[in-house]
Design a protein around this nucleic acid. Sequence first.
DNA 1: AATCTATTGCGACAGTGTTGCATTAATGAA
DNA 2: TTCATTAATGCAACACTGTCGCAATAGATT
Lengths: 124, 124
Amino acid sequence: MKRRNTATQEAVLAVLASKRRAMSQDAIIKQMTVDADRATVYRILNRFCEDEIVHKIVADDGKQYFAVCVKCDDVIIPGNHFHFRCTKCETIECLPSIVEYSVPESYKVENLNCVLVGLCKECS
Amino acid sequence: MKRRNTATQEAVLAVLASKRRAMSQDAIIKQMTVDADRATVYRILNRFCEDEIVHKIVADDGKQYFAVCVKCDDVIIPGNHFHFRCTKCETIECLPSIVEYSVPESYKVENLNCVLVGLCKECS
DNA sequence: AATCTATTGCGACAGTGTTGCATTAATGAA
DNA sequence: TTCATTAATGCAACACTGTCGCAATAGATT
Ligand SMILES: [Mn+2]
Ligand SMILES: [Mn+2]
Ligand SMILES: [Zn+2]
Ligand SMILES: [Zn+2]
């Protein structure tokens, strides 16, 4: 299954790369110049997740948000970081803060989905 | 707005109290002996949240899960604890582990939604 | 140009959570 | 007890999200 380059994929990535935030499919399509079908954008985003170009966060509104896997302060932010959702400006951003946790004996953690909710710097 | 006691409310609470897990509205209704309307159960659960009888977790499947606010090892588990979702037995439980985080200057955290995903003790 | 097949658009679907509104029933006063 | 008040419910309807099947389109390669 070799990947192909398409205008729609580049448009999706361009939006995600320009904003420094995690965005919902809804918000991504609104920001896109090219029009694309909802289902297509979902497929593109899921493909990006498989290829680890973006990562997915499920916020406490139940929606999926996607963000590019970027470097921050010259350190690659891995999957296991906190996210922050501002209830006022309705944005979600990746925090440079790593999630530290401990689980009971013999539990196996494969994934994290940690979202802090509140007011961001600008809104508080 | 004074609260009234009803059989449905007690049934919902009975289910949540008997299981030690966080449950979705779906799962709660399946376990209930009394039948009740979907919408009613949601209203009951949201009321319980307001009254802080239960707390709500949004898992990475985008669904809302509800759990009674119980004591664990004689220590009250507050709202800011991790949750664990087992992908095999499809349960969500409250972990006794507190979420430790740090946010950038002047961010205000009002809520947490932190879910660890993987295999629980029995399933791993 | 011809071929292969990844990608897309469209329609359809299941599931979740919410709301409006008429009806029922819990509660406290008479 | 009876009555009045209104919280709680059942039902229908709705918006929204994420997914999938399938035929059509269009990258990539020879
Ligand atoms: Mn992130
Ligand atoms: Mn909990
Ligand atoms: Zn903000
Ligand atoms: Zn399990």
